[in-house]
């Protein structure tokens, strides 16, 4: 948690203050991608090494659909109300 916040803020400061040369950005992009791929791989290893998660994959899939439906509906409803109100004010 502390690590996440510190890394994130460092990154924002570095680029916002323009501390990196413009041509270095393609390098940091690649570095980010390597970090992401390594993490996704270790995530896979943890899933594969945990028999409980493997046997739960089916229920996880169902839960995932329910949650994403909730998120999509919640955001669509709120924004729809906002748009409607906005139009009436115009």
């Amino acid at each position: 948690m502390g690590l996440i916040v510190i890394s994130l803020i460092m990154g924002i400061l570095i680029s916002y203050k323009g501390l990196l040369a413009e041509n270095l950005y393609s390098f940091t992009d690649k570095l980010t991608l390597v970090g992401l791929f390594l993490l996704l791989f270790t995530m896979g290893v943890k899933i594969g090494g945990d028999p409980e998660v493997v046997s739960n994959l089916k229920t996880l899939g169902f839960k995932a659909i329910v949650l994403s439906l909730g998120s999509v509906l919640g955001s669509v409803i709120l924004l729809f109300l906002f748009e409607f109100k906005f139009k009436r004010e115009d």
Binding site: S7, L13, I14, L31, V34, G35, L39
Partner: peptide, 10 residues
């Protein structure tokens, strides 16, 4: 990897 990733995201 996580610190590298988040540095990049930042």
């Amino acid at each position: 990897s996580l610190s590298i990733l988040l540095l990049g995201v930042g």
